[in-house]
Design a protein around this nucleic acid. Structure first.
Length: 639
RNA sequence: GGGGCAUUGGUGUAAUCGGUAGCACGAGUGAUUCUGAUUCACUUAGUCAAGGUUCGAGUCCUUGAUGCCCUACCA
């Protein structure tokens, strides 16, 4: 025990912004910076990262952490982060995906070096692997010349057949030891389009008996006679990921190449390619070379290539969610959801449409930590992060989802009342109540809501045969109407089918706006335990409200049967056609926050957080439920 | 069969040289509350296993167990 040990950073000293200690990637970066591995020792600004999506699909929640990590790491060091599209396979990639990925990353808060701060759709500053094809080609020729690569004329099937296995070496290709000149010539003709798809590949000559299969003469280039969404028909050969990725990182002077766990086995190959090119070259110049725009001086080709450090971490994998592209596509194609941006989808566009906030996604990404442990992350943690953010900023509104009519029988048109001083009451009997916009934010102010003789309350807030712990309205019972009066239920009216269709109640004029009624003759003070939300029948607007639930019923969909679709939740969507909302929800009001993404979000009191759906029109309001409020009554009742 | 990586309360994560196993979420109890929300307080429960080294092991050594990834001309 050493009493003078220095205090370690403690979460209590910094309760809001998580991270009690630095995670393993931050520690690795710190060590590199301190050692001057990439430039002057202690210069944090050399730290360079990249987020390298392949433009072959839509971003989903599983990508969010990689975005947060890569951009965050660069920014916390004052370094840079590139958005680079890894567009090395023209058979799967489209420009459409480039656009959607750019939009999603900007929404998440990613701002790469060179991006246009005002235009969230702009390609400004974005880099593309395809921009580097020429340089990659030259380096490949260099490897051939060094005897480290060869053109193989075997078919894919033949190569597959010659693969050995664990403890069993591959059988060498008959072309493995052909002269460099021959490979060089063939490689040039592959590039020129002389050969058919799959007829020839360029392979690295490494180790046919390597226990790491990635090192058994991996393919570097394949022939693909197909136009590329950016380079058109300029190329007939395309580089493989393993060959291309380290070179892309090198060209952009990336210092720390962050990727997910499944690439651990590829790191030796990543390193081998850079080292192979560097073999026989001059030592790298001090520093990482000129960095602007990620370009290297072309005259530097005889210098050693910059060699980034690949670091792997465990991807974000929430429960009750599937991120397999194939499965998501199947959901869309089978019509189980309305599209890639269905609010139930784990895509970034789906989460956005559902009303989720980038703040919550970022908090979730950080709260789950950065480790190499392949964990499954409780979706409840995300929901909690979502509530925590929205609780602070979302304006409160009154919304009755399943209306039940309430008539205040003793409501008359008298203009007087015990507590009416200074409050507005119209000739038609409409009274105006002050409602707090956000109890968490005094600056949000108050608004007025109208109270009339006929109201709607929530159906589930009334029970004829209520259990003792039911604090809401029951026959003969009294409750508070939020921001308004206490009412007592005197009469229950049912239709022929026996269904409750109206409640006839009386109100106590002494209870306006939270006031307690005066004590009775014996000095006893009346109390109510329940507070209900309500809307004026006369003033309420009708709206469609979409209630979303988890798409899957199992924490790990498909764990049992192998097919996640077997665990699909049949009740993941409930549409309420005619909810009754307070009129302030009809359009944006001045006291609402300015949401950066333009999506209007609210808390419907006692229900949850909702946002305006993009299908909504002025004459057709539609709200999506983002997440419910915590409900300890429902939880207790479920037991 | 071979290789790589991992394993700390229910869940996710901290723990510097080997030196008080901490935090968050969840769960439970209570307080506050014009949202059964929020907020606050308290409680709960843990080092994969077995050996070894040591005054002292989550940490080092040995053996084992379990999980994930890897034999694409995808990334």
């Amino acid at each position: 025990m050493s009493p003078d040990r220095p205090d370690r950073p403690d979460s209590r000293a910094n309760p809001s912004e998580s991270q009690p200690t630095k995670h393993f990637i931050q520690q690795a970066i710190d060590a590199d910076v301190a050692a001057g591995k990439w430039g002057p020792a202690g210069d944090r600004s050399v730290v360079t990262t990249r987020f390298p999506p392949e433009p072959n699909g839509y971003m989903h929640i599983g990508h969010a952490k990689a975005v947060v990590l890569s951009f965050g790491l660069a920014h916390e060091h004052g370094g840079r982060c590139y958005l680079r599209f890894d567009d090395t396979n023209p058979e799967k990639e489209e420009a459409e995906y480039v656009r959607s990925i750019i939009r999603d990353i900007r929404w998440l808060g990613g701002d790469w070096t060179g991006c246009d701060p005002d235009n969230h759709e702009s390609e400004a500053g974005v880099t593309f692997a395809s921009d580097y094809f020429e340089r990659m080609y030259a380096w490949a020729c260099e490897l051939i010349t060094k005897g480290l690569a060869y053109v193989d004329e075997q078919t894919a099937e033949q190569i597959k057949a010659s693969r050995g296995g664990p403890g069993k070496a591959d059988t060498p290709s008959p072309w493995r030891d052909r002269p460099a000149e021959e490979s060089l010539d063939l490689f040039a003709r592959m590039k020129a389009g002389e050969f058919t798809d799959g007829s020839r590949v360029l392979r690295a000559k490494i180790d046919l008996a390597a226990s790491n299969f990635n090192l058994r003469d991996p393919v570097m280039y394949r022939v693909v006679n197909r136009p590329h969404h950016r380079t058109g028909s300029a190329w007939h050969i395309y580089p493989m990921y393993d060959w291309a990725h380290g070179l892309e990182d090198s060209i952009e002077n990336v210092t720390h190449s962050i990727c997910t766990l499944e690439f651990e086995d590829h790191r030796p190959l990543y390193d081998w390619f850079i080292n192979a090119i560097n073999r026989g070259r001059q030592p790298e110049r001090t520093g990482s070379g000129p960095g602007a725009g990620g370009e290297r001086d072309a005259a530097n080709t005889a210098d050693r290539l910059h060699h980034a450090q690949q670091i792997e971490f465990s991807r974000l994998e929430p429960t009750y969610i599937v991120t397999s592209k194939r499965k998501l596509k199947q959901l869309v194609d089978d019509g189980r959801v309305t599209g890639w941006d269905d609010p139930r989808m784990p895509t970034v566009s789906g989460l956005r449409r559902r009303g989720c906030t980038p703040e919550a996604l970022r908090a979730f990404s950080l709260d789950t930590g950065v480790t190499k442990f392949k964990a499954v992350h409780d979706l409840g943690l995300f929901e909690g992060a979502q509530r925590a953010h929205l609780n602070k900023v979302a304006p409160r509104r009154l919304a009755v989802l399943r209306p039940l009519k309430v008539t205040i029988t003793n409501w008359d048109e008298t203009l007087e009342g015990p507590n009416l001083e200074g409050h507005r009451r119209d000739a038609d009997g409409t009274e105006w109540m002050d409602a707090v916009n956000n109890p968490e934010d005094e600056a949000a102010g108050t608004r007025l809501v109208t109270f009339t003789r006929e109201l709607y309350i929530e159906r589930e807030d009334f029970m004829e045969d209520a259990p003792k712990k039911f604090f809401r309205l029951k026959p003969g019972g009294e409750v508070r109407l939020r921001y308004a009066y206490w009412i007592t239920c005197n009469e229950v009216i049912k239709d022929d089918a026996g269904e409750v269709i109206e409640l006839r109640c009386t109100y106590d004029p002494h209870t306006r706006g939270g006031d307690n009624p005066p004590p009775d003759a014996e000095g006893k003070v009346r109390k109510v335990k329940g507070t209900l939300h309500w809307v004026s029948a006369q003033h309420a607007i009708n709206a469609e409200v979409r209630l979303f639930d988890r798409l899957f019923t199992e924490p790990q969909p498909g764990k049992k049967t192998g097919d996640p679709l077997d665990d699909l939740n049949p009740d993941s969507l409930e549409v309420i056609e005619a909810a009754k909302l307070e009129p302030a929800l009809a359009s944006r009001t001045d006291d609402e926050p300015n949401w950066p993404d333009g999506i209007r979000r609210y808390q419907f009191e006692r229900h949850g957080y909702f946002c305006v759906d993009e299908d909504a029109a002025p004459d057709r309001p539609i709200f999506n439920r983002t997440v419910t409020l915590k409900d300890s009554w429902a939880k207790a009742a479920a037991k």
